[in-house]
Nucleic acid binder design. Structure first.
Length: 562
RNA sequence: UGGGAUGUAGUGUAAUGGUAACACUGCAGAUUCUGGUUCUGCCUUUGGGGGUUCGAAUCCCUCCAUCCCAGCCA
């Protein structure tokens, strides 16, 4: 019995590296420091959640810290609105960077001084090749490049030109500062990478102080070094940049050496996750904005009703590795359903109302039934639901000619109205087109509360809303934005795979009065219809469908071809 | 002979020389005042070929496949 049942949760490769570094005294102060470095050129999306959870999660787990660093080195694309949304989204996930808030632009002066030093040491030079010439001199993937004529420019002239660049004496594109590394390197990133370019753009933070801006390969590693980052985690496409990263952190005078590790970014089928494509959806007006509930942005899924806990659970389930992978959308839905099932208050809401009249129930009478807020949570409490002679049920819950396996209401059939009574349908009223607009039924007073003395069973239980007491609400029924597993795979244009029915708006859904207590941020389940939340941008009673319930009847119907 | 990486069920992730497993999906059934939840069961896996070893997903060789890189983007 002395065998300890020590559950070892398997470590991912990054945790192994960290534990190994820690065990071998390779970490200053034994404190790991990570950073989340978004570029404020768009809204954060689900893919970023993986990175956020990784960086903040690792810091939490190993009692280190995680910096938030806005990687703002390209003023042309970046905006203060994005910075604010990024902060809001990280906080929503429950992470806190405390006082460790940085901006790459904080380092512009230091970066500039390092650049000057490199020039003085003959390790950087000002180049005046045009874009085209630059490309030509760079060589190709299979052939090395050749040295720019500017490579031999004197230190004095380099210094003078760089200073003139800084002073704004040269137009954009006329000069750049390049590192003198190796034009014949098989790694293109090492063929004298550009360190600085001229941009006469107003920076969201530094304004017009600068007209030269440092490039990623120069800024990022040095920012990491300045902040004392120990483990700099990024996505796979930066693997090729690691030599450039190591080059920059080895510059004389930089006394801290962070290391870069790469992991596979998160891909999910049926979703597009690139900022370019998301921006496009916003610009073209295909969606309502960055926080449209169909967007895979953090703001979007928050507005859709996803909980941060469910997303963190999702991220922990998909793991971390170096293999390019595509996660099933269904796993995300599973995670949100699992979480919301435990916490959502149940409400009866009829999305597609059909009038139901109980002929033997007294006119004008209203009685109340007690409903549990959440059967999965014994402490959730109850609320009252008004019942009356005229009710609404879902159109789907009644059929004149029921198919095989139909458990719901039909003429002569008996079902339970949840919490209330058993009813039997007797007749229907139709409009001129032959559509059923009203169902007449009788109820069994003995079945009050949903069970009968003779203990007879019914196959179906329907939710319902009192016609006189019910509240009219708007429900926005969201579905996938794209129909294809890999949007654009077939035609090359992801817009070809847009789902025309990604949003169905119902303006006359009927809800029990309890709906009036719903607040933005509450997690709700409309019984048998799915999880919903109050829209955080609308004034009135507007509810967004987060996700449907699993629906095995729909699946069965489809299989039977009904 | 450009460079860099990666190959485990349909999907994702474990197993780090000792019986290939967990979750999701899918399928079947039980329970149920949500056709939800819960529970039970089933399906399917080490890219190919060699080698080392008593024993290989794991070590070696080789082949194959896939992804990333030629922005003054990040």
């Amino acid at each position: 019995m002395d065998e300890r049942t020590e559950e070892k949760t398997p470590l991912n490769f990054l945790e192994r590296i960290i534990e190994d570094d820690l065990a071998n005294g390779r970490v200053p102060d034994n404190t790991i420091v990570t950073r989340f470095p978004p570029e404020p050129n768009g809204y954060l999306h689900i893919g970023h959640i993986k990175s956020i959870c990784l960086n903040f999660g690792l810091a939490e787990k190993y009692k280190g810290r995680c910096h938030l660093r806005l990687d703002d080195t390209n003023p042309e694309k970046e905006d203060i609105e994005y910075i604010q949304s990024i902060m809001r989204d990280i906080r929503w996930l429950g992470f806190d960077w405390g006082k460790y808030e940085y901006h790459a632009s904080d380092y512009y002066q230091q970066l500039y001084e390092i650049a000057v030093r490199l020039i003085k040491e003959g390790k950087a030079y000002v180049d005046n090749l045009t874009f085209e010439e630059m490309k030509e001199y760079r060589g190709t993937l299979t052939e090395g490049g050749k040295n720019s004529p500017s490579r031999d420019r004197s230190v004095e002239e380099n210094l003078r030109l760089f200073e003139e660049m800084r002073q704004g004496k040269h137009p954009e594109g006329s000069y750049v500062l390049r590192a003198k590394i190796d034009m014949s390197s098989p790694n293109i990133n090492m063929r004298d990478p550009v360190l600085y370019r001229i941009k006469f753009a107003t920076h969201p933070r530094t304004g017009d102080t600068w007209c030269i801006y440092p490039m990623y390969d120069f800024t990022h590693p040095i920012s990491d070094a300045i902040e004392g980052i120990t483990h700099s985690i990024c996505t796979l496409e930066f693997e090729d940049h690691r030599p450039a990263y190591d080059w920059a952190t080895s510059i004389d005078g930089i006394d801290h050496t962070p290391h870069q590790y790469e992991f596979a970014r998160l891909n999910i089928n049926y979703l597009v996750m690139s900022k370019r494509r998301l921006l496009n959806l916003v610009k073209l007006g295909i969606v309502d904005g960055w926080d449209d509930p169909r967007m895979p942005t953090i703001s979007g899924i928050r507005r859709r009703g996803y909980s941060p806990e469910s997303m963190k659970d999702f991220v922990s389930r998909i793991g971390v590795a170096k293999v390019e992978s595509v996660v099933d959308y269904s796993l995300m839905e599973f995670c949100v359903r699992e979480d919301l099932n435990k916490r959502a208050e149940r409400l009866m809401v009829v999305l597609d109302p059909l009038k139901l009249v109980i002929d033997n129930y007294p006119e004008g009478k209203v009685e109340y039934f007690e409903a549990v807020k959440n059967p999965e949570d014994p402490n959730s409490g109850t609320h009252q639901i008004p019942f009356s002679r005229e009710l609404y049920i879902e159109k789907e819950d009644f059929m004149e000619v029921p198919p095989k396996g139909y458990h719901r209401l039909f003429i002569g059939g008996e079902i339970r109205l949840k919490y209330a009574y058993y009813i039997t349908a007797n007749s229907v009223v139709k409009d001129e087109d032959g559509n059923v607009v009203e169902v007449h039924c009788t109820y069994d007073p003995e079945s009050r509360g949903g069970t009968t003395p003779d203990n007879r069973k019914v196959k179906g239980t329907s939710h319902w809303v009192s016609a006189s007491e019910g509240i009219t609400i708007e429900a926005r029924l969201y579905d996938k934005l794209f129909l294809s597993e890999y949007p654009g795979a077939a035609t090359g244009n992801y817009l070809d795979d847009l789902n025309p029915d990604s949003l169905r708006i119902v303006t006359d859904a009927k809800a029990e009065p309890e709906i009036l207590n719903a607040k933005v941020g509450d997690y709700l389940q409309f019984i048998r219809n799915g999880y919903f939340c109050k829209d955080n941008r609308s004034e009135g009673l507007v509810f967004n469908r987060t996700v449907t319930l699993k629906d095995s009847w729909a699946k069965l119907k489809q299989k039977m071809g009904v």
